[in-house]
């Protein structure tokens, strides 16, 4: 058997510290902060003071549900990651907050996933899964139960595959892994792991449909949800198109990414702006390098702040 298959037990989407470059870590922290900020904004109005106990207990639920498994064969078992399930039953924003909490506690308490790379972990397992899971589920609202469950199955399978592909991509951008090995390996393993996720999610949702359908109808009736459907469909489409192309021709993908400048962005950011990691007039000393790093970090921090301010203002204006 190819040793690469040992690479991944189900929990192995939790990237530890040290495996991602500072640039990639900060970029994904920035993305995560934006999404989590939006999620906080959007859930506050909906849930009010009920929010904290509900989401806290729901996060504990996802954590505990990840312990549930079913034996497959040869000592392997099917597991639940829960990102898609959380977004479907709680709504996308609450789902993102719940998964953020789960990943944060796993990293802080159990060292399951690092601290500097936590932004990437939250994005891979909480935000991306919610976008796909809820987006596709939203498209199925109003159809028959069977169609809905089939779409939910496909969505949760895709959410795991997409998360795994993004992990492979991040590892490669950081210069940690060779794309032509890690991409097909992650894809192959998680296409199987995703089946377990899909089966458990569908069965769990069918169970909730049977016993408490009222819980699901509340978050599905608001507004049209066209934006969600679009985002979910776009990501799903991207996964479906990239996967076969990349596994058949990983060198091609590498080529495209190099041409587009992704590699440099990943490995040298955030202080790409400062030539050769040093500040000109200070010469090539260690001090200069650190200062360059600090300035880079400040720039990224400022950008994040500016973007979040911008995003915060816009919806407020639209409401008034």
């Amino acid at each position: 058997m190819n040793p690469i298959h040992l690479l991944l037990t189900p929990q192995q989407l939790h990237i530890p510290d040290g495996f991602l470059s500072v640039g990639v870590s900060l970029i994904f922290w920035a993305l995560t902060i934006i999404f989590v900020g939006l999620a906080i904004r959007n859930t506050r109005g909906e849930l009010g003071e009920r929010q904290i106990p509900l989401m806290g207990v729901m996060a504990a639920f996802i954590f505990a549900a990840q312990m549930i498994n079913f034996p497959v064969a040869g000592g392997t078992s099917g597991h639940l990651l829960g990102g898609a399930l959380a977004a479907i039953v709680l709504g996308p924003w609450a789902g993102i907050l719940v998964m953020t909490t789960v990943v944060a506690v796993q990293g802080l308490v159990f060292q399951d996933g690092g601290l500097l790379v936590m932004g990437a972990n939250i994005f891979n397992m909480g935000i991306l899964t919610a976008l796909i899971g809820y987006g596709l589920y939203r498209a199925s609202v109003g159809r028959s139960r069977g169609v809905q469950l089939a779409i939910v199955g496909a969505a949760s399978w895709l959410s795991v595959v997409a998360g795994a592909l993004l992990v492979a991509f991040q590892l490669w951008l950081s210069g940690t892994s060779a794309l032509r090995i890690v991409f097909p390996a992650m894809l192959g393993v998680h296409m199987l792991i995703g089946l377990g996720e899909a089966l458990i999610t569908v069965a769990a949702l069918a169970f909730i449909f049977r016993t408490r359908p009222d819980l699901l109808s509340t978050n599905a009736q608001k507004r049209s949800g066209l934006g969600w459907i679009l985002v979910g469909a776009l990501i799903a489409l991207a996964v479906i198109i990239i996967s076969p192309f990349a596994s058949a021709n990983p060198d091609g993908l590498e080529r495209v990414a190099i041409d587009m400048g992704f590699i440099q962005a990943g490995q040298a950011a955030p202080y790409e702006i400062i030539p050769d990691y040093t500040i000109p007039f200070l010469g090539e000393s260690g001090f200069s390098t650190i200062l360059a790093g600090l300035i880079g970090a400040l720039i990224v921090g400022g950008l994040i702040y500016a973007i979040s301010r911008f995003l915060r203002r816009k919806p407020a204006g639209a409401e008034s």
């Binding site: 106990p53 207990v57 639920f61 549900a65 079913f70 099917g78």
Partner: peptide, 24 residues
């Protein structure tokens, strides 16, 4: 077996949800 695991997850969700209401 997968369906049983899913039912357990669904069951756990309902218990958790109801517990959160009680806690609140």
């Amino acid at each position: 077996r997968a369906k049983v695991a899913g039912n357990m997850a669904g069951q756990l969700f309902l218990r958790s949800y109801e517990r959160s209401e009680r806690v609140y």
